[in-house]
């Protein structure tokens, strides 16, 4: 079983320190970890560092399976490539291997199209997709590579409410069934509360907290990290949710 652990991880761009001293307990296969924090907190940089796309300080320890490389889904970007959705998923699956696309590859691609309910998009051109459809295709490109560690940078940012719910439910189910360690950056705190087993809170390139969502997400933390006043409701046995009441910055400070 794969585990991922970060020790004193940091990244600098020139003189600017983007991430510093990020250390976590072991993050296990089967877990969904939500990474939350305000804009420019260092979430994308952390994912890129874990994925091996950025060099930096500290150690990223992956144990349990030889040659396991984290599978990273960057934030959505439009493309004008003349490829169909199906071809783009084949491309993700076959990267680094032979030209031949075998039955196992096709079965895996069909399965992922089915899981994400995007079979009807299979032969659309990538340039014809809406932002939300593009995001689903990107998730398909990631899942088809049979990842052990999955790093998803804002995977639901372009999706409607129904699709957000469906995609996060699917990710949680796949994490359990296929023993994947899923890290997903989210802006919606309520999604983190609902779907994550653990939550990592980043602000200013530092790790503010990591733990069970109900324990970590408090009104004090929301105030400190997001500069908002909020209350948390529905905690007694039900699903807790955050109600934002306003900005805690004074008008003069803003």
């Amino acid at each position: 079983m794969v585990t991922l652990q970060l020790s004193c991880v940091g990244v600098r761009y020139g003189q600017r320190e983007i991430l510093a001293d990020i250390s976590t307990p072991p993050l296990h296969a089967g877990e969904v970890i939500a990474v939350i924090g305000p804009n420019a907190a260092g979430k994308s940089t952390l994912f890129r560092r874990i994925a091996g796309l950025l060099a930096g300080a500290g150690e990223i320890r992956i144990t349990g399976r030889a040659g396991c490389r984290p599978c990273y889904l960057p934030q959505d970007a439009a493309t004008n490539a003349v490829l169909t959705v199906y071809e783009s998923i084949v491309l993700a699956r076959k990267q680094g291997s032979s030209w031949r696309v075998g039955e196992r590859d096709l079965a895996a691609i069909d399965a992922v199209l089915h899981d994400l309910e995007i079979e009807h998009l299979a032969f659309r051109g990538l340039g014809e997709l809406s932002g939300g459809q593009r995001q689903l295709v990107s998730i398909a490109q990631t899942l088809v590579r049979a990842p052990q560690i999955l790093l998803l940078d804002e995977p639901t940012s372009a999706l409607d409410l129904h699709r957000q719910f469906e995609v996060l439910s699917l990710l949680k189910r796949l994490a359990r069934e296929r023993r994947i360690c899923v890290l997903a950056s989210l802006h919606d705190i309520n999604q983190a509360l609902r779907f994550a087993d653990r939550v990592m809170v980043l602000a200013g390139g530092r790790l503010k907290a990591i733990g069970v969502p109900r324990e970590v997400i408090t009104t004090a933390l929301l105030g400190e990290v997001y500069d908002i006043t909020a209350r948390i409701e529905g905690g007694d046995g039900g699903m807790p949710y955050v109600v934002v009441e306003g900005s805690s910055r004074s008008p003069s400070a803003a």
Binding site: A51, C71, L73, P74, A77, A81, L91, Q95, G96
Partner: peptide
């Protein structure tokens, strides 16, 4: 070029996406 066919195609999805595929 043929040996790099998958990687070159991936480049058309953007650098970040291609890099995330291991290119």
């Amino acid at each position: 070029f043929a040996r790099r066919a998958w990687a070159l195609t991936a480049l058309r999805l953007g650098d970040e996406k291609a890099a995330s595929f291991g290119v």
